[in-house]
Nucleic acid binder design. Structure first.
Lengths: 152, 152
DNA sequence: GAAATTATGTCAATGTTGTTGACATATTTC
DNA sequence: GAAATATGTCAACAACATTGACATAATTTC
């Protein structure tokens, strides 16, 4: 009989520790604004997908509108995010970053981007596509391929 | 001038979605016992490092003893984890899994292990070491290399 | 054009998991 | 015996998630 491989404890734990530090560094910057991880996610996906609707953001984040409302209120009242009624459908509240919002979002993505760039450089720069594929395969298959919905 | 690469949005987001689903599947099993992610982490690291002390577990998890106490109480009263006084130092409460605890821990690690095995198989089985290295490099450097403290 | 549906917002209650601060107990070390 | 250590516990609080109910404005449908 071929040996039965047990669970890959090493990768399971590396994923835990890696993710913790990956979000831990941004956490410290967010704290200075009184924000948390939930604010980070909103800033990130609005930055990546400017003008998206509230419904689209809820789909990406997979949280309830009540959860989103709380952090969105902080971000709007702090003038990091702006809401504008949709031109076609004026019920929609499309989300845009202000200058402050863009600055913060870019500082956060800069931290995470540099951490990833460093890690890839040390691991093997040629392996980036394989790493991307690995992470993509970790995601539940029935999910829509891209986090970027068509919302023009 | 060489082009300045921006942050790697793709990997940043893949890490977010991958981690969410990676812990989301275990979440659904834990729920049946009335447990959450915090319980999962404790079960996992006790399984991996049986007989470890409370202090060692706190160092791995980087949480306060009050946070640990809550979930540990659930796990002990539900007979998933057993505490035994250390033989050398009887102030210590060393942690062990019961049979139920081991069953649950193994079911959880099985889910995560299979997900990782599938993802590696689809990405490139030969790339496992590079992926491990990448994740390891994502971790803050000043951290002790291995999650397994010497506690014999 | 009235009725139904949709997009969004909001109020209230609740649960999990984290925090800080203070204090108690048992055991070991000096 | 006094001090330090390992652990536990009480209380208050914060962040972020949930469910359920209801409100408003705009769009779509009949």
């Amino acid at each position: 009989m071929p040996p039965v491989e047990g669970p890959d404890f090493e990768l399971i734990e590396l994923l835990f520790f890696a993710y913790r530090d990956f979000v831990g560094e941004p956490d410290r910057l967010l704290e200075k604004h009184g924000f948390g991880r939930a604010h980070h996610r909103v800033l990130h996906f609005v930055n990546r997908n400017e003008g998206l609707t509230v419904a689209e953001l809820l789909e990406i984040l997979e949280i309830t509108k009540q959860s989103l409302a709380r952090v969105l209120k902080d971000l709007v009242s702090g003038e990091f995010i702006e809401q504008r009624a949709g031109t076609e459908d004026r019920r929609q509240r499309r989300l845009y970053l202000t200058e402050r919002g863009r600055d913060l979002a870019e500082a956060l993505v800069g931290m995470q981007g540099r951490r990833i760039a460093r890690a890839i450089a040390k691991a093997d720069p040629a392996a980036r596509p394989v790493i991307a594929r690995f992470l993509a395969e970790l995601i539940d298959p029935q999910r829509p391929a891209s986090p970027v919905p068509e919302s023009a």
